[in-house]
Design a protein around this nucleic acid. Sequence first.
RNA 1: GCCCCCAUCGUCUAGUGGCCCAGGACGGAGCCCUCUCAAGGCUCAAACAGGGGUUCGAGUCCCCUUGGGGGCACCA
Length: 493
Amino acid sequence: MKPARVRFAPSPTGHMHLGSARTALYDYLFARQTGGQFILRIEDTDQKRYVEGAEQELLDGLHWLGLEWDEGPDKGGEYGPYRQSERKEIYQRYARKLVESGHAFYCFCTHEHLQKVREEQIRNKETTKYDGTCRDISLEEADRRIRNGENHVVRFKTPKTGTTTVHDLLRGEIVVENSSLDDSILVKSDGLALYHLAAPVDDHLMEITHVLRGSEWLPTFPLHSLIHKAFGWQEPVWVHLSVFLKPSGKGKMSKREASDLAKDGKSIFIKDLRELGYLPEAVINWIALMGWSYDDHTEFFLLDDLVEKFSLEKLNPSPAAINFTKFDYFNGLHIRNLSIPDLTDRIHPFFVEKGYKPDREKLEQIAPIIQERLQTLDDAPELAGFMFEDDVVINPAELIAKNTTQAESFTILKEIHQVLLQLPQINHETAEPPMRELVEKLGYKPGQIFGILRVAVTGRLVSPPLFETMEIIGKEKVISRIEDAIKMLESYT
RNA sequence: GCCCCCAUCGUCUAGUGGCCCAGGACGGAGCCCUCUCAAGGCUCAAACAGGGGUUCGAGUCCCCUUGGGGGCACCA
């Protein structure tokens, strides 16, 4: 396979979300797979929509996901600059070429005129488009008016008749009537290029071989293709990725809906996912499979597997609804795939966040017994935080085992106390056999006996495996908690 | 309104004319395992949007309808 040059070209206008992350992922995979380059280009030609910090968030997001780029605004490269706001003169030069070759024209129409035309078209139930007022102004006259300081933009001179055929890798040929196309603006009156000009020019100059972008670009795809043709450039391979739909499948996620997700511990924004306890590995695995598949039985992928197995041909052109439930599943899968030291490192900040002061050694003992119980890293403190607490809060009613009376449970608890007290230390090997014997001796169900012990030691009905938990807490604390529980049960009415 | 794209279980999908009375995964139901919760194992329910063609044969090709999505800015 020939080395591909692929670009991820986000605009710094908001938070990086799942859709752009997936585009970046596919870009990365294809570049790495072919031994080519993954290029980061910031499309910030619209200063009005520019959001402070958005570019940094993009870089952070890509780093977190492990999608390292080869050329970009922070890394440099032979094809820079990689920020479109720094390429203004380049676009102007190419716009001029287009005008001189008759593929574009200067337009002096005012907003008022344009507005009037549009309103009239709406009134007549016609398609709203540029009326062509300045289309045939000679270059000489246009230059004169420009020298006189007249406000102007550059528009593409779209053919009025015939059809334009474009080729998308996933959809094949798309044929559109040129009459349905507009004379789109390429350069604004402030001299800055619009996406329609900037992207084709950059893609050509940066020698991009494959353009992977969202399907929202499909309507303007013919324009972009026409621009390449007007310059006489070879077009890149075009791949329009499907969009992500909200979980219901009904439309794209609105800003409001996106922020509402946070209440459920979900988010479509990459920056949120980390603190919600999701693994970058899980994000990668999950989004890779929304619009791409490998075969009908492999679903667990690490980034390197994907580099090897990815293929443009298996991309799916239909829109996909975001399924957070499956995301949780993948997150659990990847948590279970982590080594204990790695898991320990990753859950550490979540304990700190909750106000615990976990020491590394103890946390590393805890990690293996909660590993298969975690859906997100964020679950860890809730599951095991009590192991760092001096005292647990016990609800005495919970000390009474199912199908026993208070007196019976009280007796059981005292028996448990006696058995454990005699052990030199408490762990899985030393404590389980005698406890099983006790179960036999007293004639209750294991669940009843262990249930009482669980509540006494952990203060909760649900916990990691009992014996491992007691080992970590230590005999001294276990015994004292049981003694507290005995007192509590004795006086409970 | 106009233009464009898409269409298999609730969701993500496999399927490129016979291997499909449609396979996998998540989720759901049930069972097993079991000290709770998980994890794991097994089983079950669950789909080719509709109608026309083409063909010996259509989920797979073509057309229409319907549904869904996207776009119609001096935004990207």
